[in-house]
Design a protein around this nucleic acid. Structure first.
Length: 537
DNA sequence: AAAGCTTACAACCGCGGCGCG
DNA sequence: CCGCGCCGCGGTTGTAAGCTT
């Protein structure tokens, strides 16, 4: 690639190697050899030159611009400048609500076909639309709002994208990678490494990334999106190594994870609406004919924990994470199931199992679980509305994460890492952890309200069914604190970003998901309380 | 007031398709 | 058929502006 140096004369960047360092395909002609082409922001003088050239010669033949005008810009840059900024009839300013709606619809249909989308938006450029999508729309994800409105999720499959399901979610084929891209999230290599016959990819958050694992409504079988801000490295793990740190769980005890538990649309529902997807370890049937080898994940991604080619799974659950639609990592269900098996936790009675049920039953099951759980927390939740006063401390969450990160040495084995968690993040309400000493004071101060809310809800029964003394648990108060912080962060972001629209958005999704409300802490804090095994033999 | 952080956006970059000789 | 140049597309990056602490 070309080497760029700072052009001190005009503040721009100069491309110094020839012929045209800015374009690998040599978008230009050989006549530019030796000519230093300017890079960086365009000046008004340059704009005027380009406009004048187009007036005289029309669009196209961009490489001739430099020849005819002496403009020190490559043809590609000229085309981009003209198309995105100088050509007439360009709309400037923020997108209107109608345009926003159209973009969402078009993206649901087309995916990242920005140029095609731009055709439907007169005066808007593909670059504008792309930037819009990558910024404004993604805020919805961070805010816990669905990527697409529910009505779009109920529409038919998008055009031109065979594997995009009805909710704009890609299915289990390799196109699932696109959703990462479309959402601006880079797919972790591990997601597809097995597709290439590889083994582990190195960039995986450890399961001990406490910010990445939650359950919903007190049901560890339900997992929702979670904040993932720690960015921990995956701890390499010997598949043959017994994981004694998990409370006695060993590889032999790990249940089979080679199963999917939900279909694509359901996955998407999970993602878009914050549904907590149930995972029934005994549910061996794949709905809607999903290939079991495909290792679908709750959010519709194909896990790489099993080779697609059908090779035998001969290792411990990889404790993989996936980037869900909210740009956070979710633990792969097998990972969670493994955790469940490790801690010996079983779901409380009350919710019918979706076992042997189809999508509809699964949804009903979820609705039932949501209803039951929501009823339990609704009073508290409604009295703990997210308001501007909940403006959060994003940095606090990061700081907390950094604190945690220090305990999670990626060089350790997974078990060791978790041991660190156990050592440092045991629940304060359960055994009096020293977490307060570890976390910044400002977190503990600023999260006081949320903490009280969290703990109140715990006292009010969300965790009543859980055995708080069960050894081998993996959760700690640090989760609760992170949860509270994250909840506030999301709430504040949403308030700030979405303004009044957020209220309606909440109303729109309130009946669908708690997670969507930015109330992820209600899931965090309903993780089964745990105790350090060593403390409670 | 200033430092740090986040966001939004312009521009760059790499890649692939297409047409032409 | 092949190579070359042009062009468009989508992803990524750099940075200014705004915001928070």
């Amino acid at each position: 690639m070309g080497r760029c140096i700072s052009d001190e004369s005009d503040g721009g960047l100069l491309s110094t190697d020839s012929p045209l360092s800015n374009d690998g395909d040599n978008f230009g002609d050989s006549s530019n050899r030796g000519i230093v082409l300017k890079k960086g922001p365009w000046t008004t003088a340059e704009d005027a030159i380009l406009i004048d050239y187009v007036k005289k010669h029309g669009e196209g033949n961009w490489n001739a611009v430099q020849k005819h005008t002496g403009l020190s810009r490559c043809g590609k840059s000229c085309r981009l400048r003209w198309a995105n900024h100088l050509r007439p009839n360009l709309k400037k300013g923020a997108f209107t609500s109608e345009e926003e709606r159209l973009i969402i619809e078009l993206h649901a249909k087309m995916g990242n076909k920005w140029a095609k989308m731009a055709v439907h938006l007169p005066g808007r450029t593909d670059n504008e639309i792309k930037n819009y999508w990558n910024t404004r729309i993604k805020r919805r994800q961070r805010a816990g709002l669905p990527l697409y409105p529910p009505e779009l999720c109920l529409q038919g499959p998008p055009e031109n994208q065979q594997s995009l399901n009805s909710c704009g979610m890609y299915g289990g084929d390799t196109r699932s990678f696109d959703i990462f891209q479309s959402n601006g999230y880079k797919a972790p290599d591990v997601m597809f490494d097995r597709l290439n016959g590889l083994t582990y990819a190195p960039e995986l958050p450890d399961i001990s990334d406490t910010g990445s694992l939650i359950n919903c409504f007190g049901y560890p079988q339900f997992y929702s999106f979670v904040p993932q801000s720690i960015g921990l490295q995956k701890c390499p793990q010997d598949p043959d190594e017994p994981m004694s740190d998990y409370g006695g769980g060993t590889a032999a005890e790990v249940p089979s994870f080679d199963r999917a538990h939900t279909d694509n649309c359901e996955n998407r529902m999970s993602q878009s609406f914050g549904f907590c997807i149930s995972y029934d370890p005994d549910h061996n049937e794949l709905p809607l004919g999903i290939n079991q080898d495909s290792q679908f994940m709750p959010n519709g991604f194909s896990s790489a924990s099993k080779p697609i080619a059908g090779a035998e799974k001969s290792e411990l659950p990889s404790l993989q994470y996936q980037v869900n639609g909210f740009g956070v990592w979710d633990p792969a269900p097998e990972s969670l199931d493994f955790i469940q098996s490790s801690i010996g936790w079983t779901p409380p009675s009350g919710c019918p199992s979706p076992e042997s049920s189809g999508l509809l039953e699964a949804l009903l099951y979820e609705a039932n679980a949501l209803s039951q759980s929501w009823n339990q927390i609704s009073d508290k939740a409604t009295s703990s509305t997210i308001s501007a006063s909940d403006i959060t401390d994003c940095s606090a969450f990061k700081t907390c994460s950094q604190e945690l990160k220090g305990y999670l040495d990626p060089m350790f084995s997974l078990g060791n890492s978790r041991g660190s968690i156990f050592n440092e993040c045991t629940p304060t309400h359960a055994i009096g952890s020293s977490l307060e000493e570890k976390l910044p004071v400002r977190i503990l101060k600023s999260e006081a309200v949320d903490q009280s809310w969290v703990l109140d809800r715990e006292r009010n029964g969300i965790l009543n069914d859980l055995d708080c003394t069960r050894p081998g648990g993996i959760l700690g108060s640090c989760w609760l604190e992170q949860s509270a912080s994250f909840t506030k962060r999301r709430g504040s972001e949403t308030d700030y970003v979405l303004g009044d629209d957020f209220g309606s958005e909440l109303n729109m999704y309130a009946g669908t998901s708690v997670s969507s409300l930015g109330l992820s802490s209600c899931t965090w804090n309903t993780m089964p309380a745990v105790r350090q095994t060593s403390d409670h033999p």
